[in-house]
Design a protein around this nucleic acid. Structure first.
Lengths: 193, 193
DNA sequence: GAACTATACTGAACCCGGTTCACCTTAAGG
DNA sequence: CCTTAAGGTGAACCGGGTTCAGTATAGTTC
């Protein structure tokens, strides 16, 4: 409960250092970085890590939460600069990018996703809301079909973002996104039930 | 190296029991079942488990390998009974089913997928081959576009199969599969680069 | 600016769960 | 039967996340 009382100066510094250290480790592909390592990187002892985060997983969650928040800030700008369908396409690609950044985190997150922790549920909700906004704009403009919601699309994208294998995964992701986008486009020759 | 010498009768029995116990545990959603539990279920001691499987992960891998083998037997029958595009659609849905069965295994597999272990690489190759076959049949018949390969499609499906959340995940999966399928269909109004 | 105390930090010890291995059991051939 | 190599057992080990009693310090009060 951060509302209780502002953190002491050193505590805040350490907390930030821990988050930064963890992010660095994950981005470097060290998804399984040991708590001791993360603590060392941050220049503190393990105990300090546990003062700020209930558990190792909680730390991962917090890093993830920040990452998601950053991503979810994008749609506003996109909708101002592009037509709705293009904005949607761009955001889908951003999701891919986001996955690239979190490549190392994917493994770290596996347990969280599996556990269906509230953090992940939240994140999904946020991202789905972003997509809903973009989809609504597109279907309003008549360029995107109206029978798909953000939740569904997010799940589809979730897969695309799960590519871990090396060698051209980015091209693959882009191609798949294009494929999905083809399915999303509004066309007269397809009749929905 | 199973080619060396046939297993002793009791050894074979125990090995089978272990695989069955592990499969049961995973299917029951006990993705994190402890080795001791699995061993107990199989009516043996942990040491026996380790006599048959290098490591816990190796056991998971073996269960998965069997699962994949079973799935990859499907295309032949499908192609005999349906038109190529319908066969493809059916197989995509089978993939979803496969994921449903392995719901519990997904978590167990997370590390394997992340580690890019040869088992998973193999499995991907097998499944991609299945899809290639179906895609080829479809594009031969002129009903499926020819610019998507099995590897790409598998990755797209991989995401669909990663749905863990409760509540209507199956409907979601089906809808997404339909979406992808729309993207895959051969139509005059789309020109590829 | 010294004393005070709530807050924060430290790291050795703890615990859990996968893994090992020295010792015991038994299937299968003679 | 007897032999023996294959197989089974489970207590002990070990790595890594987690705890907590002891220690340090930011911020406040006089």
């Amino acid at each position: 409960m951060p509302s209780s009382r502002p953190l002491r100066a050193d505590a805040q510094r350490n907390r930030d250092a821990l988050l930064a250290a963890a992010r660095d480790a994950f981005l470097a592909g060290e998804a399984d970085a040991h708590v001791e390592d993360i603590a060392r990187r941050a220049g503190v002892a393990v105990g300090t890590l546990y003062r700020h985060f209930e558990t190792r997983e909680a730390l991962v969650e917090e890093v993830y939460r920040q990452e998601v928040a950053e991503l979810c800030a994008a749609p506003s700008a996109l909708l101002e600069q592009h037509a709705p369908d293009e904005a949607l396409r761009q955001f889908l690609l951003l999701l891919v990018e986001h996955a690239a950044i979190g490549k190392g985190m994917a493994a770290a997150l596996a347990s969280i996703m599996a556990t269906d922790s509230p953090v992940f549920v939240d994140a999904r909700a946020q991202m789905a809301a972003c997509l809903d906004r973009l989809l609504a704009a597109g279907s309003g403009a008549g360029t995107i079909r109206a029978d798909v919601d953000g939740k569904t699309l997010l799940r589809a994208m979730g897969g695309v973002c799960n590519l871990r294998a090396a060698e051209g995964w980015r091209e693959d992701a882009t191609r798949i996104t294009a494929l999905l986008f083809d399915g999303l486009r509004c066309r007269a020759d397809i009749t929905r039930d």
